[in-house]
């Protein structure tokens, strides 16, 4: 259950990045998973080169990885997406190219091994269980029903980031500008919004969210140059089920899919579960392109 919640939290952050980029820019970033990988790999580099208490390295990674990934993304936007004028077909082909460039560069510099990053803290927390016994309601700690403090931290951090993001989007001027650009690019231009800069920032922000999610998960999973594949596919699934470009739908779908992933796997083989999930996504796109939670356009 808790494993599912950790997965859902990280997935929500990653998918939010993809959804944001698609929503505002109408760009499908096929390289999104590689920015996730980039976050994890940078976290490993930062953590190992700083040394000392793991918490120091982790905090440094938390600050640096999203920024570096974001800057790489801004570069991609400036050098590739903008020159092709955000043409849907060209951006997809271009970001497929970026996918291989980032992935293979990681292979050349970081290598083919999977490497762990030490969590900043990790305590086993036993969870209590209540049962009626001879003395009425008794509380005890059964073996196996436990979690660790770091996993709880991941969930808490993800929720905090999502809330902050939601506040920025709905309350701040930056959020207003992004929403205006999303609604109508031409009008936004006419009102003096620097659309081209907004696009760069949004693309960087999307990649940064993926990298941030990866830094959070890397103490639990290991960093590996091919680790971007699954988050990309799952993010696609989440964004499509939740409705393309809808933030609330994205979060709901991420929680649903992240949690159900663990539960379904109990009954079905994981491969069969994945087959059903991908087919389901394809069918949602065919028959309900606005997503399961999106509103049907009038």
């Amino acid at each position: 259950m808790l494993e599912g919640a950790v997965g859902a939290a990280v997935l929500a952050l990653t998918a939010l990045g993809l959804s944001l980029v698609f929503g505002v820019m109408r760009v499908v970033n096929v390289a999104h998973g590689e920015f996730f990988m980039l976050g994890a790999v940078i976290a490993w580099f930062v953590a190992t080169s700083i040394g000392g208490h793991p918490a120091v390295g982790f905090v440094a990674a938390l600050a640096l990885a999203p920024v570096i990934a974001g800057l790489v993304a801004v570069l991609v936007d400036r050098l590739i997406l903008k020159p092709v004028k955000y043409d849907p077909e060209a951006t997809i082909v271009g970001t497929i190219g970026v996918l291989y460039i980032l992935q293979q560069t990681a292979l050349m510099t970081y290598g083919p091994e999977a490497r762990p990053v030490e969590p900043p803290f990790s305590h086993r927390i036993a969870l209590p269980w209540f049962e009626w016994g001879e003395n009425g309601l008794a509380m005890f700690y059964p073996w196996g029903l436990s979690t660790n403090s770091y996993k709880l931290f991941v969930i808490g951090a993800a929720i905090a980031i999502l809330l902050a993001f939601w506040l920025i989007m709905t309350r701040s001027k930056a959020g207003l500008i992004m929403r205006a650009t999303q609604l109508d690019r031409e009008t936004a231009l006419a009102f003096g919004i620097p659309v081209s800069r907004v696009y760069s920032i949004v693309f960087g922000l999307g990649a940064g969210l993926a990298a941030l999610a990866a830094v959070l998960i890397v103490p639990i999973q290991q960093a590996h140059y091919l680790m971007g594949h699954d988050p990309l596919l799952l993010s696609f699934i989440v964004v499509i089920i939740g409705g393309l470009g809808s933030v609330r739908g994205t979060v709901v779908a991420a929680v649903l899919i992240g949690m159900s992933d663990g539960i379904i796997s109990v009954f079905l083989s994981p491969t069969l579960a994945k087959i059903i999930a991908t087919l389901l996504v394809a069918l949602v796109l065919v028959f309900r392109p606005q997503g399961l939670f999106g509103k049907k356009p009038a």
Partner: peptide, 18 residues
């Protein structure tokens, strides 16, 4: 030359797009 030969594919895709 390298085991990261798919890098070439990525670079070619980007160059073609541009």
């Amino acid at each position: 030359l390298t085991n990261a030969y798919m890098l070439i594919a990525g670079v070619v895709l980007v160059l073609l797009t541009l």
